[in-house]
Amino acid sequence: MNETLLTILEVIFMPVVAFVIGLFMVLMMRKLAARLQRRVGPPLMQPFYDVIKLYGKQTQISHGLIHDIGIIMAVGGYVAAESLLPVPGMDGIADKGGIVMLAYLTMIPSLGLALGVGQCANPNGSIGISRALTSMLAYDIPYIIVIFGVAYHFGSTNLIDIIDTQQAGGVATWGISEMPVLAIAGLFALHASLGKQPFEIYIAPAEIATGPMVEMGGKYLGGLFVMQSFQLYTASVLYVSLFLGGGENWITFLLKCFAVLAIPIIIAYLFPRYRTEDLVRLVWKWPVMLALIGVAFVMT
């Protein structure tokens, strides 16, 4: 009973931590973009200002119940998913799901968003969702091969086991030193999954007016900001857990997370955008090839 209570406490606490870290990840992203463009960039608390302002908007425009529920699902799905990601000192319910579960659980927020956007009846939004799903079809294939390779290598789909194995053996047993090819493919897939340039086909502000966000204002947009910060957090923590030995303590953990995220972001802001079919072609070619080679190495 005591253990259950502890788990519940962790489940409550983990999303909060994730949210705060996620907001700083958003800040880092914007700061890095600014530095790359030789700008100063936003102040430290800018993501908080944005979120508070959006929630504080006086008029909120809704296109119907599903529009509201979509946002709730988008935020709530990630709140739930965060408790499957072990962080130093807290395992949450990571032993009850595993990575396959996590991969599918993170689709719920996207599905919620897709429903909400659909209710808005704006074709820009629908085009955005169709593109988002297309890019998901593209990047999920290398991503899932990477997950397969890692799970096969460690003989477990349980993230706690995977992290423990790596921490017990030190750097030499980290995923990245034992499966470098898979790690590269994973980073590629992670980049594509973030939806940043050159893979931001579904936001495309100049083309489809930010796609899914087209009818979102006020707390709806605020919800999507929160979702984005969760998304950055989830992607980087998952990568750190699979390849960088998770977090021994909070300092190394945060260092690793921010470092992992910085790589795709730095690449992102140097590129324009691909077209949908080119994205699919690129992602089905290079990361998939790398991932398959990586799996071949792992299995022999």
Binding site: Q37, R38, R39, V40, G41, A209, T210, V214, G217
Partner: peptide
């Protein structure tokens, strides 16, 4: 907006649709 004057340091960002804008 760009590097010379950089509005973003004041928290000003361009947005695309009226729903998102202030």
């Amino acid at each position: 907006m760009t590097s010379r004057f950089d509005m973003e340091r004041l928290g000003i960002q361009p947005m695309v649709t009226p729903r998102q804008a202030d």
